[in-house]
Design a protein around this nucleic acid. Structure first.
Lengths: 349, 349
DNA sequence: CCCCCGTGATAATAGGTATTATCCTCTTGA
DNA sequence: TCAAGAGGATAATACCTATTATCACGGGGG
């Protein structure tokens, strides 16, 4: 009631104070000098002076309505963006997003109004406010490719973080295949001949990449590989199968699974890496910093975020000069760790 | 493909299809039955059927435009909001901010476009975009009270996190005095009679609170207290003075200082708490989670963030029903830790 | 003298929704 | 038959900005 009429300074108020029309104010603000538009320096200065005196800022809502730019980059996260007890997934990415946005003079609009249902946010809900931003960065492990396609068809500009196998979608992702192959080769060189892969569902692109790279590389070396999906069969059962199968090396996709399997191994008196090697095909978990020094790899997450913003900015502003690729893959670093060793001769069963 | 070129489905299109006016569609959608508004069941059903058949979604932009409010809560941080190598200060607060915003259906606007100068952001810079949001949460250790007063005078609605001794400013802060007194009493009960206080500058309200509470409580018990400002004299010198002074207990305001002083003590072979007790008058540092289990206290930071958003929301929407206080202080929890013990009889010098 | 053109600024309008005032029709009571 | 009123739906308008078409004015060339 009070805040709407008394509060906001509009172009009309500026116009009154400067003794010009609202249209003139808009033209000055946008620095228009196109065909037919001429504003003498004197008038321009008068308007700008009034604006400075009043702290005017264009209403992003009205601006969006007419299709203008807000210098707002949306950030959509499928889960809570800020870390809580259970998750600290986005933080490194957002660090990069923030620094890039700062460098480009953009503000970040976090779509917290999209409520979590079943622990996930939905892009298309009752009243999605995505359009408040000029474009959007999409963050999340499990995006729905159907939703992505729908969003793309709506004409909305966005960049996904993580590779997406959907036609016409810009992304900045991580090459998981190469480090997976590298670790597989290390395992082969170490002399392992029986491996187990505790993986996640193959629904996501990154999971498939790891899976394909690992199976491919091991098969080429003639090494036996048994697989199990941890969420499907449960970690206790996975561990039982590992022991029953006689594998000397265990590849684990999810770092949390790795922590737990490691604990199970320790409980059974299995020494790592003397009895059994552990290789994590993913990021070392931050929260587990006090834990095990796993052999794993690390993605440049902060740079990932920064690149995504830069790419989105380019897409929004239209191409000019050197262009960034709309589909980028960044390289991982392999972290040696202390959990990959030579296979033991003795059986630990 | 349907929605991109043809544009989105609007109320007007629904109206045409249902053979009614746009106003009727709006009334149906909002379920209005107020005075004067009557819509027979038959018409209502017809409109709803058309809506179901199409993919109509109300445009949030237009909706905000007419409402006057953006449902945007600004978040202004004086430093980078997202953690980097050097700082992880805001994260717990932002976790609370996010959950409260989600509950209230608000989006968060992070003012990253305000560039850092000398490691700090400035509220009033070239073109502050603060007014993009309906109101704003202010986060930061060292806010400038002059800036705050200026912002208040501009009529802008905001809530500060942390107590601010500026007239007419809403805040949600932490009561540091009470836990400081509590820890001081514990020290007294333990038998300490000579204390040292390694503190920060007294510029901030929270620093003064701690200082006043500590000096007051110790003085009442007739205990000698020596002070030094760590940033002014340097930690090495502080440590020298601590040793020279013969204090049996060291109060440290800043957790990082505490970590370093602890390291200096360890290097000198001083045992904690047997030779010297450490009490931290602040939050245990997260990054130092693997480090020392300091006796300290902990502020409910997540709740702090959530309350700030709730308070701002109330201020923006105008009062109705039970009201939150515009100046709140939350209680700390004292964490016993392992660094407060009884004073040693032997001198460690 | 009239036409044309350059200069400077404005009126009008779109964009989608919510709200209010207004209008039309039909029924009922006197 | 007319006034009153209820029921049903719409036109008009506001919200704020960006854009386009238009207008007023004066000077120079024909």
């Amino acid at each position: 009631m009070t805040s709407s009429q008394g509060g906001r300074v509009t172009q009309r108020k500026i116009a009154e104070l400067a003794g010009v029309s609202q249209a003139t104010v808009s033209l000055v603000l946008n620095g228009r000098t196109d065909n037919g538009v001429r504003i003498p320096e004197e008038t321009r200065k008068r308007v700008l002076d009034v604006i400075k005196a009043t702290t005017y800022v264009a209403d992003p809502v009205a601006r969006s309505l007419v299709g203008g730019m807000n210098n707002l980059v949306g950030v959509f996260t499928y889960e809570h963006a800020f870390p809580n007890e259970t998750s600290d997934f986005y933080t490194p990415l957002l660090t990069g997003v923030e620094s890039a946005a700062e460098a480009l003079g953009l503000d970040l609009l976090m779509f917290t109004s999209a409520p979590l249902v079943d622990g996930r946010r939905r892009i298309f809900h009752e009243n999605s406010r995505l359009r408040l931003a000029d474009g959007c960065i999409l963050l999340g492990r499990k995006m729905d490719n159907g939703e992505l396609a729908k969003l793309r068809d709506s004409g909305y500009k966005f960049v996904a973080i993580g590779r997406r196998d959907v036609e016409g979608i810009a992304y900045v992702g991580v090459d998981y295949g190469t480090p997976t192959r590298e670790l597989a080769r290390q395992a082969i060189e170490a002399g392992h001949s029986a491996a187990f892969y505790a993986r996640l569902s193959l629904a996501g692109e990154s999971s498939r990449d790891r899976h394909d790279a690992l199976t491919d590389e091991l098969a080429a070396a003639g090494i036996a590989l048994t697989q199990a999906e941890t969420t499907a069969v449960g970690l206790a059962e996975v561990w039982r199968r590992v022991r029953a199968g006689g594998a000397t090396i265990l590849f684990v996709e999810d770092p949390k699974d790795a922590e737990e399997l490691y604990a199970l191994a320790a409980a059974d008196g299995v020494a790592v890496p003397d009895d059994l090697s552990f290789v994590v095909l993913g990021e070392r978990d931050r929260k587990g910093g006090c834990g095990v020094d796993f052999t794993c790899f690390s993605a440049p997450r902060t740079e990932l975020g920064a690149r995504a913003v830069a790419l989105l900015d380019q897409i929004l502003k239209g191409v000019q000069g050197p262009t960034l690729s709309t589909r980028q893959l960044l390289e991982c670093t392999v972290l040696p760790g202390r959990t990959l060793g030579v296979p033991s001769v003795r059986s630990y069963r």
